[in-house]
Simulated assay, not measured.
Amino acid sequence: MYDVLVFVYENFWQGDACPESEQLSLKLSAKGFEAADIATALQWLDGLRLATQELQPAAGAAQVPPVRLGEAPAGPAAITLAQSANAMRVYSVAEQEQLGAECLGFLRFLEDSQVLAPGMREVIIERAMAAPDAPVSLDELKIIVLMVYWSTGIEPDALVLDELCDDAQDRVAH
């Protein structure tokens, strides 16, 4: 599936430039990708489209109603609510098992670098949980992060892009 996602990222510069599922499936099949990988990737991309639509409220949309203490927000409110500076994300056991310490550390690094908003982090986690492989490797998570940026139309900073695309094993310590 990840090879298909990389192909889509490299060939369609923004999520809105990507063709519909049927046409994309034909293009991917013509490029030699296996039918099972194509189906899995297209299902994953459909989930990504839905998740990022909630991340970007439509222009002129009604304000999100306030959430009362003890109530869980629903729908777009769950993603678009601002996070307090004192807030802390607690990962469920399933998320910890699916992502692992290395991926969770990488997400924290992106947040600490102020290049990953809480709403985007939640979409990344949700898409990682929807990934067919368990646990998700760091390289796979980086592809997921790239795809979330791609789908939202946000161009990552050059240093972030370098971090996402660079193989850490090839680096030489100074």
Results as ranks from 00 to 15, higher is better:
2 Y>K: 11
3 D>H: 14
5 L>C: 06
6 V>M: 15
9 Y>S: 03
12 F>E: 01
20 E>T: 05
22 E>R: 09
24 L>W: 03
24 L>V: 07
24 L>A: 08
31 K>W: 09
32 G>V: 01
35 A>P: 10
35 A>R: 15
35 A>K: 12
40 T>D: 15
48 L>N: 04
48 L>K: 00
53 Q>I: 07
54 E>F: 07
60 G>R: 04
62 A>K: 14
63 Q>M: 12
63 Q>E: 15
65 P>Y: 02
65 P>D: 09
66 P>Y: 04
68 R>S: 09
68 R>G: 05
69 L>P: 06
70 G>T: 01
78 A>V: 08
80 T>Q: 12
82 A>M: 07
82 A>F: 04
84 S>T: 07
84 S>E: 03
85 A>E: 08
87 A>R: 09
89 R>F: 15
94 A>E: 13
99 L>I: 07
101 A>F: 09
102 E>R: 13
104 L>Q: 03
104 L>A: 05
106 F>C: 05
110 L>R: 03
113 S>H: 10
113 S>R: 08
118 P>T: 07
118 P>H: 06
120 M>H: 10
121 R>H: 09
124 I>Y: 04
126 E>Y: 04
129 M>R: 09
134 A>F: 07
135 P>W: 02
136 V>Q: 02
136 V>H: 06
137 S>F: 01
138 L>I: 12
140 E>T: 08
144 I>S: 00
151 S>H: 00
151 S>V: 00
159 L>R: 10
159 L>N: 09
163 E>I: 11
166 D>C: 14
166 D>E: 11
167 D>A: 06
169 Q>Y: 06
170 D>L: 09
170 D>V: 12
171 R>Y: 01
173 A>W: 05
173 A>L: 08
174 H>N: 13
